[in-house]
Amino acid sequence: MKLTYDWNKDIVEISETQVSNELEFTIRILSDHHFNSMKLVQKNFEANDVITDVLVYPYTNHEYRVVVRNDFYEDFILQLCKYQLVTKVEWKKG
């Protein structure tokens, strides 16, 4: 099954690219109400025992480059949903 997700374009911009065994995301927070959300996502992954699961690189203007190991992809998307950066998560056949 393939994981798909959607987000509110007024709150966040998200793009992802597959690179080898990782995914690279570019995420830009547009809503001041959600500025702290990526920090909370980052804290969640920093608190576990796996160092290379999700690496978050902050830039100016609330933009982030995020490198996610393939085996943590679902966990990362669900964390984005938890903090309301992603509005819909669905597994589809295919």
Rank of each mutant, 00 (worst) to 15 (best):
Q79I: 00
T17V: 06
D10K: 15
D49R: 04
T87C: 03
V41Q: 04
N8A: 02
F76E: 01
K92L: 13
T87Y: 02
K93V: 08
S20L: 13
N61E: 12
K92P: 00
E16H: 09
T26H: 12
V89P: 02
K88N: 13
Y73F: 14
N36F: 14
N61A: 09
M1F: 09
W7K: 08
E13Y: 13
K43G: 08
D71N: 12
T17S: 08
H33K: 15
N21S: 15
N44A: 11
V50W: 07
H62G: 01
Y83R: 06
E90Y: 05
V67K: 15
Q84A: 10
I77L: 05
F35V: 08
Y5Q: 05
Q79M: 09
T4C: 05
N36P: 02
N36H: 12
V19Q: 09
F35L: 09
T26V: 14
T87V: 03
N61K: 10
V89E: 02
E16G: 03
V41I: 10
V41W: 04
E13T: 11
K92Y: 01
S31R: 06
E63S: 13
K88C: 05
T60K: 14
L80W: 01
N48M: 04
T52P: 06
S31P: 02
S37M: 09
F35K: 12
T52D: 15
F72I: 00
R69I: 01
K2E: 13
W7D: 04
T4E: 14
V19E: 13
V86W: 03
Y59T: 04
W7E: 08
D75I: 00
Y64Q: 02
Y5C: 01
E24S: 08
I29T: 06
F35D: 09
N61H: 11
K9R: 14
F25W: 07
K9Q: 14
E24P: 00
K9A: 12
I14Q: 06
N36G: 12
Y57T: 11
Q42S: 15
G94M: 01
Q18I: 09
D53A: 14
A47V: 00
D75P: 00
E22I: 11
Y64K: 01
L78G: 00
V54A: 04
F76W: 03
K82R: 09
K2Q: 11
E90A: 10
F72P: 00
I11A: 07
T4W: 07
I51S: 10
N70D: 14
S31Y: 01
V86Q: 03
I27Q: 02
R28H: 06
K82D: 07
A47I: 01
M38I: 15
L80K: 03
K39Q: 12
I51C: 07
D10R: 12
D53W: 05
T26C: 10
Y57A: 05
L80Y: 05
H33T: 14
R69C: 06
S15L: 05
N61G: 08
S20P: 00
K88H: 15
L85I: 06
Y64L: 02
L3F: 07
M1N: 10
W91V: 11
S15K: 14
F35P: 05
K82G: 02
I51W: 09
E24R: 15
N61F: 08
K39H: 14
H62E: 08
I51H: 11
I51N: 09
D75Y: 07
D75T: 04
W91Y: 15
T87S: 15
K2Y: 10
D53L: 00
